[in-house]
Design a protein around this nucleic acid. Structure first.
Lengths: 204, 204
DNA sequence: GCGGAAGAATGAACATTGTTCAAGACTGAA
DNA sequence: TTCAGTCTTGAACAATGTTCATTCTTCCGC
C-alpha cells in the first residue's frame, strides 16, 4: 500500500490487464464489464478511469499481449525449421500457417477479440498496436524473400499479406462452430494444400 | 414467429426491416437502436417487441436480405460466363471471387454485419439463415465439380469451403481500412493469383 | 518532520441502452 | 351496444459505461 505511486500505477495496470485477459478468455469481449473488473482488482468503479481511459483501451492492451504470444508461437514454429532452399521456405510457410491455426484454436476467445476491436470511428489505433501487426506479417515475408528473391519488395509485402489473409480466412471459417465442424487434421490438410499451391503460383 | 401474421404485421415487419437495413447501412450494427427504430416506423418503443422478439432477430433478418442480394450478385457473375471446359471453371471461380469482393466493398457495413452476428451462446441460428450460407458455398462448389470430377464429393465440398474462406480472408483484410489501404485493382490481382494457384494445386 | 499542493480514490449520479409490463385503447363478432 | 381478446403505449426496470464533486494520500520544498 505504500509503494511509490508510479510503481503502484504500473502494478495496477498489470493487474487490471490480467483481470481483463482472464475475463475475455473466459467469456469473450462481451464479458468485459467495468464493475466486474474494478471488483477483480479491488478498486472502486471510478478508479478504473485513472488507470485506463476506456474499456476499449483495455481490450487493446489485452490484444497486444495476445499478438505478442502469437508472435512467439510463430517464431517458435519458424525457428524449428531450416531456411536455406526454396523448399525450406515453403515448408516454413506451411509450419507458420499450422502454428497460426493451433494458436487460434488454443486461444479461441482471445484470438477472436483481436478482430472484434471496434475503435471509435475516426480514431486510429496506437502505433504500438500497429507495430504488433506488422511484426506478424514479417514472419510470412521473410521466407517469401527467399522464395521469390527477384520480386520487387512492395510486391513481396503484398503477397505476404495475401497469403496471411487467405490462411486467416480458412482458420476463421474452420473454427466457426455454428457451421459444420471440420476436424482439425482436415483443416491442417486444407491449409497445407492452399499454401503450397499459392507458393507454386508465385513462381510464375 | 411462424404463426400466420396479419397483413398489418407483415407490413410493420417489412417497414421495420427496411428501417434497420437503412440504419445498418448508414452506421453499422452499433447504430441499431430500439428507440430510433421505433421512431422510424412511428410506433411506441414497446411495440417493437410485438413485431420482433429481439434486436438480434432484426439483425438476422437484415443479414438474410444481404445474403440474398449477395447470392444474386454471385449468380449474375456466374451466368455471364460459359462453363464447359476446365479453363471455364477456373475463370468462373475467379469471376465469383471478384464479384464477392465488389459486393463487399459496395455494401461494406451490411456485409460486415453478416459476421458480427453474435447469437446468444447456445442458440443455433435458424434454418433459413443456415440455408442462405449453404447456397453461397454451392456457387463455388459447382465449378469445382467440373474442375475435379474424380474427387469424392465430401472432398469437393471441403475444397469449396476452403477456397471460399481464403478469398473471404483476402477481402476482409483488404477492406480493413485501419491497415494500409490496398488499391482495388491490386486486390483483384491478388485474388486472381490465389484462386488460379489454388485451382492448379487441386489438379495434382 | 511538516504543510500544502497535486494527484488519486471513492461511490453516487448520470446517460444510454435493451426489455418488460400494467393499463388503456381498439377491434370485431354476437 | 357490449364485451372479450388483442394491440399499443410509455413508464419503469435493469444493466452498463462514464463523469464528477468530495475525500484521502502522497510527495516535495521548507
Amino acid at each position: 500500500m505504500n509503494a511509490p505511486l508510479s510503481e503502484r500505477r504500473q502494478a495496477q495496470l498489470a493487474a487490471l490487464t490480467d483481470a481483463a485477459e482472464r475475463r475475455i478468455a473466459e467469456g469473450g469481449m462481451a464479458s468485459l464489464k467495468a464493475r466486474d473488473l474494478a471488483a477483480d482488482i479491488g478498486i472502486a468503479l471510478g478508479g478504473l478511469y485513472n488507470i485506463v481511459t476506456d474499456l476499449d483501451e483495455l481490450a487493446l492492451r489485452v490484444s497486444s499481449r495476445t499478438l505478442g504470444r502469437l508472435g512467439e508461437a510463430l517464431t517458435a514454429a519458424s525457428d524449428a525449421l531450416p531456411l536455406e532452399s526454396k523448399a525450406d521456405a515453403v515448408n516454413r510457410l506451411v509450419a507458420i500457417a499450422h502454428a497460426y491455426l493451433h494458436f487460434a484454436k488454443g486461444n479461441l476467445r482471445l484470438w477472436r477479440t483481436l478482430f472484434e476491436l471496434r475503435l471509435a470511428e475516426g480514431t486510429a489505433l496506437p502505433a504500438w498496436a500497429a507495430d504488433d501487426q506488422l511484426r506478424l506479417f514479417r514472419h510470412v515475408a521473410e521466407p517469401l524473400t527467399l522464395l521469390v528473391p527477384d520480386m520487387d519488395e512492395a510486391q513481396q509485402t503484398l503477397a505476404a499479406r495475401t497469403l496471411f489473409a487467405a490462411v486467416h480466412g480458412i482458420v476463421t471459417l474452420g473454427l466457426e462452430e455454428r457451421l459444420v465442424a471440420v476436424p482439425l487434421t482436415a483443416l491442417e490438410a486444407q491449409i497445407e494444400w492452399l499454401v503450397r499451391a499459392a507458393c507454386r503460383g508465385l513462381g510464375e
